[in-house]
């Protein structure tokens, strides 16, 4: 059975609080926090980008199981902030991981669900026998235009998964995707910041796709929400995943462990995946997990995952919540410099 052999995460150490951003734009931080359900977000350092974050989380994943680069035959990096428009992030990641050059690689882009799309590609390649192990990474250093509501949520982080069929810590029992043409959020070629459809991003985009994919995968596997130990949904803010979970019939206990968005913001392609890793950090053999991502444009990938006995001997020391606690606050001036929002003369 195909599953996850190992996983790794990376969260930059800088954080900016909602109060600090709201102060600059003359907004009420309490109403922003109440409305978004986000208190602070991660900010990448000046020398961090999607490539460096991808390498760091992938190295952690490989180190945890002492996996050699020659044992990986595919690398997919999902992101909406690849540093190059033309030159794949996956090539740099593969070289940095010392992967034998005979590997399949591609950069994927599907707003916030490109990381889970990479997992699906790896599953297919492992199941077909094309590869033994594949590396799927979701990583982003997302941007919001100055003064745009997105500035409160657009954050940075990464999660990497080694997908294989030997010594898996979790089995991926099923996966499906639901995709439509929905213009809720986009960024045109050459534009530095994305545009979004405001309230349009809710019902027709996030809720429709996440709900449909989740309901369908449970239905075809004869499962109900109470059959799951945990559930994790894409986290564009702290409100949407809580609401969709409630609508679907999941309890707050089932989603709390993976609800990382309040303290690191929306890490885009890594968002649902970092939450999923936070669940894996504490999961026990036999636990069943529902993971549903969402990418604007729009689509959702849903997964049913079951934890195996191997998780008990797996190295889970560097937990996601520990990484969230390691932080240093910066002010808006430093944030503007790090995110290159200052036009240099």
């Amino acid at each position: 059975m195909v599953g996850i052999v190992s996983y790794g995460t990376y969260i930059p150490r800088y954080r900016i609080k909602v109060e600090e951003i709201a102060k600059i734009w003359g907004e009420d931080p309490e109403s922003i926090k109440g409305g978004l359900g986000i208190y602070e977000k991660s900010v990448p350092d000046i020398d961090e980008d999607t490539v460096t974050i991808s390498v760091e989380c992938a190295r952690e994943a490989m180190k945890r199981v002492s996996l050699n680069g020659s044992e990986i035959q595919a690398v997919f990096v999902g992101s909406e902030s690849h540093p190059y428009a033309v030159k794949p992030t996956a090539t740099i990641v593969g070289e940095a991981l010392s992967i034998d050059s005979f590997f399949h690689s591609a950069d994927l882009e599907f707003a916030c669900k490109a990381g889970t799309a990479g997992i699906q590609n790896c599953i297919a390649m492992v199941e077909s026998g094309m590869i033994r192990n594949g590396l799927a990474i979701g990583s982003d250093t997302s941007q919001g235009a100055p003064g745009d509501p997105l500035e409160y949520s657009a954050a940075a982080g990464g999660a990497a998964f080694v997908i294989g069929s030997e010594n898996v810590i979790v089995e991926i029992k099923d996966t499906l995707s639901f995709t439509t043409d929905t213009p809720d959020f986009w960024r045109r070629e050459g534009q530095p910041y994305p545009s979004h459809g405001g309230r349009f991003t809710g019902e027709p985009a996030y809720f429709r796709h996440v709900s449909t994919a989740s309901i369908e995968i449970m239905k075809r596997n004869d499962l109900e929400p109470e059959d799951f130990s945990y559930a994790v949904f894409h986290m564009p803010n702290g409100k949407f995943p809580v609401r969709v979970a409630r609508n679907l019939g999941f309890s707050s206990k089932q989603i709390e462990q993976g609800l990382v968005v309040r303290y690191i913001g929306n890490t885009y392609s890594a968002s649902s995946l970092i939450g999923f890793c936070a669940i894996l950090d504490v999961a026990k053999p036999g636990d069943r997990i529902l993971l549903t991502s969402f990418g604007s444009g729009a689509g959702s990938d849903a997964f049913i995952i079951e934890v195996t006995e191997n998780i008990e001997s797996y190295d889970r020391n560097q937990s996601v919540w520990k990484k969230i606690e390691r932080k240093e606050y910066i002010d808006y001036g430093m944030y503007a410099k790090l995110r290159r929002k200052i036009r240099m003369g």
């Binding site: 020398d47 460096t52 940095a96």
Partner: peptide, 25 residues
């Protein structure tokens, strides 16, 4: 050791990556 950006050849040039160090946590 960590993997970080060294620099870039302007906005349209190549980006250089490599090893830097950070304090052990």
């Amino acid at each position: 050791a960590v993997f970080r950006k060294y620099g870039e050849d302007g906005e349209d040039g190549i980006i250089y990556y490599g090893t830097k160090f950070v304090p052990c946590e």
